[in-house]
Amino acid sequence: MGFDELKDKAKDLIGQHGDKVDQGVERAGQFADEKTGGQHSEHIDKGEEKLKEGLRNFGDQQQ
């Protein structure tokens, strides 16, 4: 399986399961927030939103 095939498969999965992807990003953000003692909550929240937006755009791209 080549890189293009993997990329297409990732796009399909993100497009089909965007809600699960968002949940995973939020869980990762919560984990990072806990590990930093809440000191960087604002930055982590912004990063979560940017990542979710980027993944949605990636999953919605036409092939």
Rank of each mutant, 00 (worst) to 15 (best):
G38D: 10
Q30W: 02
V25D: 03
D60F: 04
G37T: 12
K20H: 11
K9T: 07
H40D: 14
D12K: 13
K46D: 13
E48S: 02
E34Y: 03
G2M: 08
K7A: 05
D33C: 07
G24L: 06
G59L: 04
F58D: 00
A10P: 01
Q63Y: 08
E26W: 00
V25P: 02
G18P: 01
Q39W: 07
S41L: 08
Q63P: 13
H17E: 12
A28N: 01
S41P: 08
G29F: 04
A32T: 10
V25Y: 00
Q39F: 09
R27M: 06
G18S: 07
K11G: 05
E42D: 15
L55M: 11
L13R: 15
K11I: 07
A28Q: 05
K7I: 05
Q62E: 13
A10H: 05
K9D: 09
F58V: 04
S41R: 14
E42Y: 07
E48R: 06
D4A: 10
D45V: 10
L55F: 02
D22K: 00
E42T: 15
G59V: 04
E49H: 10
R27H: 09
G54M: 12
G38N: 13
K7R: 15
Q39D: 13
T36I: 04
G59E: 00
D8T: 11
E53W: 01
S41M: 09
D60S: 13
E48A: 02
D60Q: 10
Q23S: 13
E34V: 04
Q63G: 11
E5P: 01
K20Q: 14
G54I: 06
K46R: 14
K7W: 07
A10K: 08
G2D: 15
S41W: 02
L55C: 05
T36Y: 10
Q30L: 08
A10W: 12
F3Y: 13
R56W: 00
I44N: 03
R27K: 13
D33N: 15
G54F: 01
D45R: 15
D33P: 04
D12I: 09
Q63L: 09
G38W: 14
V25W: 04
D33H: 07
A28K: 04
Q62Y: 07
S41A: 14
A32E: 05
G18N: 12
D22H: 02
D22T: 00
N57R: 14
K7L: 11
D19I: 02
K52F: 03
Q63I: 08
D12C: 09
S41D: 07
D8A: 14
Q30F: 03
K11F: 01
E42G: 12
H43M: 14
R56F: 01
Q62D: 13
G29H: 02
Q62R: 12
Q23R: 12
